[in-house]
Design a protein around this nucleic acid. Structure first.
Length: 556
RNA sequence: GCCCCUGUAGUUAAAUGGAUAUAACUGCGGACUUCUAAGCCGUUAUUGUAGGUUCGAUUCCUACCGGGGGCACCA
């Protein structure tokens, strides 16, 4: 449709004024009262023609009005926009797909292989609010990718060996002995915190911890190694449980320890061509035009740093999956780190950089002190979830535990996803986490209400039908019909927040309609149609929420 | 010091270079003997400051101010 209108405008412009190659835009106005499409062609052409834009627009409008039967009306608005309103039949044609499985599915990345990496846990450190944020963004991007026709696989990159891990192992060995087998993740988290403290205070501890670290890196058989292996297994199981609770699943893992071994080899193989030696370390110095900093890849002790590990990860990722697009999600803090790593990767395998896409999220800052933490001020994901689910139960005593969980998760996810990716989120549990207004529960409530109406119709023997359109539902129809375009935009730009904004507006439009118009009344035929639109709303809301990693409960 | 991100109602967010800057929260006011009130209706802006580009700037450019992050052996 868009290209049809485009060529139409270009043709009319040529015929009427004899000009071509005008770089005009054709957009979908955000305000529905401005039609389905709008063009600024008259504003652009006015300089070239030396005429008033409104005059040009009016002349064009007269020809365009009868150019295509699918265009219901064309109008001119100040200061010279031409607005097109599509015929209702075009909109209803789009809505005819609403019950198909393909509703919300696009072909944006059809035939492509996409790899999404997110939620990378730090073993021995519990899943905290930062992970929750990362998972929310990552899961939504995964769902968008899966709805794009691409072959999608997911992976996570657990940080398994580090000095921090050695510190925790030191405490566990000392406190519980070599046979220790973990049963609660909090014990590991506490050991991590305690280890960090003891390490700072005591030099003999430092020596022992470093020894442990060496043994873990080298995987030498020792009490610490076998204890570590048990903890690692436990940690991964814990990670999978909490991530499953959020609706995520990972097809595979690449461990930081593997990436470190690989990265070190890779760096050495490209020294001194790409990397150079400096003060005992091996570093990469980007070209000055890149405005990036020099980074150490292998430290003076010969160990791979974070940058070498990420370089190794690139090689392992591409060897294993060979993706056309490799998306990885991290905190915004790491932006310049990855710019350096990818710049270095350019010299080894340009595809690694060209096929990589770094999406980052901001941080959550806290105003309220409501959520305590076992980890030095950083709230744990489980605590945050528990607090929110508790609030849901307080609000509605009849709610099932499953529904309360769904609502709580949606409340948190939508707070994160409604903001533009990359921006910090000012998280005040008192106000940000509202269950009213622009919120996850509001969207869920709207879907539940719609489904309840459909069921009510069923009881009355009225099935939803879109066969005989009635007056009054036009705006809802146009809004629902935009869903596929919104999904495409989110997939193209990897920005879930457009979908959030859209769903909020859609919910408002439906609730407003609901407030002023009875859906089921004595007129069976009209009721059937209104139920048809109601059901379409339910489908769109459910599919939309699924793309954001949230589900809709049966009852609220 | 250098580099990157960011600044929008009292608050939290939105806005593909376009039209009257969009919502929500809070406050105040309202409707309902009616399908779920987590709902509906009404009521608030010098877009940090100063310039520039443009028919048109929250959006692009420059400078300044404020906030966040990064800048060699942590991840």
């Amino acid at each position: 449709m868009e290209s049809t209108i485009r060529t139409l405008i270009a043709d009319v412009l040529q015929a009427k004024f004899g000009i071509a190659d005008v770089a005009f835009s054709l957009e979908r106005p955000k305000d529905l009262s401005h039609g389905d499409y709008a063009t600024n062609v008259a504003l652009i052409a006015s300089k070239q023609l030396g005429k008033n834009p409104t005059e040009i627009a009016t002349e064009l409008m007269q020809v365009l009005q009868s150019a295509d039967s699918r265009i219901a009306s064309v109008s001119v608005a100040a200061p010279g926009f031409i607005n097109f309103e599509l015929d209702r039949s075009v909109i209803l044609d789009i809505l005819a797909d609403v019950n198909k499985d393909s509703w919300g599915q696009t072909t944006v990345y059809e035939g492509k292989k996409i790899l999404v990496e997110h939620s990378s846990p730090n073993l021995f450190k519990p899943f905290h609010i930062g992970h929750l944020m990362n998972n929310t963004v990552g899961e939504s991007i995964t769902r968008l990718a899966k709805a794009s026709g691409a072959d999608v696989s997911t992976m996570s990159f657990p940080s398994d060996v580090s000095l921090g891990v050695a510190k925790a192992v030191f405490i566990l060995l000392e406190k519980y002995g070599a046979d220790f087998a973990p049963e609660q993740v909090s014990i590991l988290g506490d050991a991590y915190v305690e280890g960090t403290k003891r390490y700072e205070d005591d030099e003999s501890v430092q020596t022992r911890v470093k020894e442990i670290a060496d043994n873990l890196y080298a995987q030498t058989s020792s009490p610490e190694w076998s204890l570590y292996e048990r903890c690692k297994e436990f940690n991964i199981a814990y990670f999978e449980t909490i991530v499953a609770r959020l609706g995520s699943h990972f097809d595979s893992y690449i461990y930081e320890s593997e990436a470190g071994v690989d990265g070190k080899k890779l760096v050495l193989a490209h020294t001194p061509k790409v990397f150079t030696e400096s003060e005992g370390a091996i570093v990469y110095t980007p070209d000055e035009s890149q405005k990036l900093h020099t980074a150490v890849f292998i430290n003076s002790k010969g160990n791979p740093t974070y940058e070498a590990k990420d370089l190794g990860l690139l090689e392992l990722k591409f060897a294993k999956h060979n993706p056309d697009l490799s998306i990885f999600i991290t905190d915004a803090q790491q932006v310049s780190h990855f710019n350096v790593v990818l710049d270095a990767a350019m010299h080894i395998n340009p595809l690694w950089k060209q096929h990589s896409l770094h999406r980052y999220h901001g941080r959550m800052s806290f105003k309220g002190q409501k959520m305590s933490s076992r980890l030095g001020g950083v709230p744990l994901a489980e605590d945050v979830l528990a607090t929110v689910v508790e609030e849901v139960k307080e609000k509605n005593a009849d709610i099932t535990p499953e529904s309360a969980e769904m609502i709580g998760i949606a409340a948190i996810r939508l707070v994160i996803l409604r903001a533009m990716p990359g921006k910090d989120i000012n998280f005040d549990p008192e106000t940000s986490l509202s269950f009213e207004g622009d919120s996850g529960p509001y969207l869920q409530y709207t879907a539940v209400r719609a489904m309840s109406l459909v069921k009510k119709g069923e009881e009355a023997g009225i099935a939803p039908s879109m066969q005989k359109p009635i007056v009054g539902t036009e705006i809802l129809e146009r809004m629902i019909a935009r869903f596929p375009d919104i999904v495409i935009r989110c997939q193209t730009e990897w920005t879930p927040h457009y979908l959030v904004t859209y769903l909020m507006e859609l919910a408002q439009a439906f609730n407003s309609y609901y407030g002023q118009q009875k859906i089921i009344d004595d007129n069976t035929e009209a009721s059937a149609y209104r139920l048809g639109i109601t059901h379409a709303l339910y489908r769109t809301m459910t599919k939309g929420l699924a793309l954001l990693g949230s589900t809709v409960p049966e009852k609220m």
